[in-house]
């Protein structure tokens, strides 16, 4: 019976996710909920690499930043149409994935983690100093968008609605991606890449595809961040912020769409409300990470699934 609860949950996942965030909005305020939603999209992008393909990146803020700056630059220099700006962000996400991916996906494990971090650091330098003439350096840039049809992105509710729609779209895409043969392939690469080559697959190609998908979705979340905040600064791509998405991935449970959503919401809730009570934020984060790593590796979603199916087994007996 409990198994069927999970099954139903899977079946109606899209409306359920939408409903959950619609319920959160009056509790948390609309802008904050929008923030939660956008971060969830970023966690989903991250989880495609970490949870499914087993590659831990310590530099994913870069890809978010690429999308954010692409929107800002596009809006300033080309057109203030928000949809074209988002398309530009997606294109930049693909471009950065195509450019860095061939180098990055050759590596695994610790090298993968750090090479992303190194490129993130370079990106931070580019935004802060090298391209300061265009990016506004430390001050960042503010953006203004035209109203398209009835969609005015100065309106908080429009941004909320659009972000929620985007999240549903990304969740749908992620579910298709992870339930396809490609999804199985990614999980196989996580477990034993060499063996996958002996099943006749050029793993490099698929790793690259996964990487580009991840950078593109991350860039998309960056674009939405700009819609929500209307400005971008280099602090958006600060390398020390990568731990946020890692934390979210771990606490939610890596390698599952629901886990990523749960993780995104949990991290945002903790980081939004806990600093009011806890002074030493980094120490809290460090200790919490250690606890997750040592005691709670399956994350919240894994915990829930184990509980629910555990009951199911007992009933069967």
């Amino acid at each position: 019976m409990s198994q069927s609860v999970l099954k139903t949950l899977e079946k109606f996942s899209l409306p359920l996710v939408a409903a959950a965030f619609l319920l959160l909005a009056p509790i948390l305020t609309v802008q904050r909920t929008t923030d939660f939603i956008i971060f969830c999209i970023f966690v989903l992008a991250y989880d495609l690499l970490y949870g499914y393909m087993g590659r831990l990146s310590f530099g994913h803020m870069l890809y978010l930043g690429v999308g954010a700056y692409a929107v800002a630059l596009f809006a300033e220099h080309v057109s203030a149409n928000p949809f074209f700006a988002i398309l530009a962000a997606l294109a930049s996400g693909v471009a950065v994935g195509l450019l860095l991916g061939p180098i990055i996906v050759r590596t695994t494990g610790a090298c993968f983690a750090l090479i992303n971090l190194a490129f993130n650091q370079v990106g931070f330098f580019l935004a802060l100093t090298a391209f300061a003439k265009w990016t506004g350096g430390e001050d960042g840039m503010a953006t203004f968008f035209d109203t398209v049809w009835i969609l005015n992105f100065d309106n908080r509710y429009t941004v909320f609605g659009f972000s929620l729609f985007s999240l549903i779209l990304v969740v749908f895409l992620m579910r298709r991606l992870t339930m396809s043969p490609f999804g199985i392939l990614l999980r196989m690469i996580k477990e034993n890449e060499t063996r996958v080559q002996f099943l006749g697959y050029n793993t490099h190609r698929y790793k690259l595809l996964a990487f580009i998908l991840s950078t593109t979705i991350a860039a998309f979340s960056g674009a939405l961040t700009i819609l929500n905040y209307t400005y971008v600064t280099p602090s958006f791509i600060d390398t020390t912020r990568n731990v946020e998405v890692i934390f979210a991935s771990l606490i939610g449970g890596a390698g599952s769409v629901f886990g990523a959503l749960l993780g995104g919401v949990s991290y945002m809730a903790i980081s939004n409300y806990l600093p009011n009570y806890v002074q030493r934020w980094e120490m809290f984060l460090g200790i919490a990470l250690l606890l997750l790593v040592f005691k709670f590796q399956t994350g919240l979603w894994g915990f829930i699934v184990a509980r629910v199916s555990g009951f199911g087994v007992e009933k069967d007996r």
Partner: peptide, 12 residues
């Protein structure tokens, strides 16, 4: 991966 994350936590 978990070992890397744990050392990062120690750093934090």
């Amino acid at each position: 991966d978990l070992a890397i994350i744990a050392t990062y936590a120690v750093l934090l």
